[in-house]
Design a protein around this nucleic acid. Structure first.
Length: 279
DNA sequence: CAACCCACCTGACTGC
DNA sequence: TGCAGTCAGGTGGGTT
């Protein structure tokens, strides 16, 4: 479900609603999602004030004040929704009931975590231990921060024989790019997704780095892509889907050269590309 | 180490 | 109408 633009949209939506508020009640309806939830540590957040809502890769990081400055680490997996609503709002849609796995009451704001496939995650760690947290320690660069550019991509791809699209989705290299934006970035850069990463020229790496940053930035501006499950904190859809050039457009004309957009399968993931203008 | 493949889960959709 | 098969935006872990 969510790639960087979707998680960033959730982060930006949640931040003004939660920062400064005190968590007054936690309800966990199960003790695991993809991994076990540290139930005592989550309950220990009660009474603390949320001081920041950050993002690293596709993880939401909710920081709290007090001893050890605990941070809640939330991942949306494929189908997770992090919904923030007024505490007084009417009950949510009945079909969510089965899949609402936890809720946090911040007095005037209620956070619900809904995740049918349960590929999501919830963990808690002290702020000082984040850098060595198993889920965060080996993450690569943030594509929208300084340090991700053509030079970096060029270095990172040398002697790599894997497909460039796979490398773009490798979180050890750069984070936040999933199956949708990997296809889109390759299209924008005019690079075929199956090209061996190491075969890209310096110029192509520059174009690809720019394409990654541009497509992510544009998608954030549009509130993300809502094909299936993704929704923002207000259960609202993002509208970047209409700006996608190739993803889920197989059989339709390329917006650049009018050739027919293709869909191929790589490692059980669909890849969309244009043979007319990607080399 | 790199590259690949699988599992984890449920729901939506397709075709018979 | 029902049932089997397929697919879905993530990613850690295991194998080759």
């Amino acid at each position: 479900m969510p790639e960087l633009p979707e998680v960033e949209t959730v982060r930006a939506g949640a931040e003004p609603l939660l920062v400064g508020r005190r968590l007054c009640h936690v309800e966990l309806r199960r003790d695991d999602l993809r991994w076990p939830i540290p139930v005592p540590a989550v309950h220990a957040l009660v009474g603390r004030r949320c001081t920041a809502v950050r993002r690293r890769s596709k993880y939401l990081l909710l920081e709290f004040d007090g001893t050890s400055a605990p941070v809640a680490i939330v991942h949306l997996g494929m189908t997770g929704r992090f919904l923030v609503e007024p505490t007084t709002r009417a009950a949510p849609r009945p079909e969510w009931r089965l899949h609402e796995h936890w809720r946090w009451d911040f007095a005037e704001k209620l956070v619900r975590f809904v995740d049918p496939r349960r590929f999501g995650a919830l963990d808690v760690a002290p702020a000082a231990a984040l850098a060595t947290h198993p889920l965060l320690a080996s993450l690569g660069r943030e594509p929208l921060e300084p340090g991700f550019d053509g030079a970096f991509l060029h270095t990172a791809t040398r002697r790599r024989r894997t497909a460039i699209k796979s490398l773009l989705m490798d979180a050890r290299v750069l984070v936040g790019v999933g199956n949708i934006y990997a296809s889109e970035a390759c299209w924008r850069a005019g690079v075929r997704p199956r090209r061996a990463a190491g075969s890209l020229s310096r110029r192509e790496c520059e174009a690809l780095a720019t394409a990654v940053r541009d497509v992510l930035t544009s998608a954030i501006a549009a509130g993300g892509t809502s094909f299936r499950d993704y929704r923002g904190v207000g259960d609202d859809a993002g509208y970047f889907a209409r700006e996608l050039a190739v993803y889920e457009r197989a059989g339709e004309p390329c917006r650049r050269c009018r050739a027919i957009v293709r869909r191929t399968i790589d490692g059980a993931r669909s890849t969309y590309w244009c043979a007319g203008c990607q080399r």
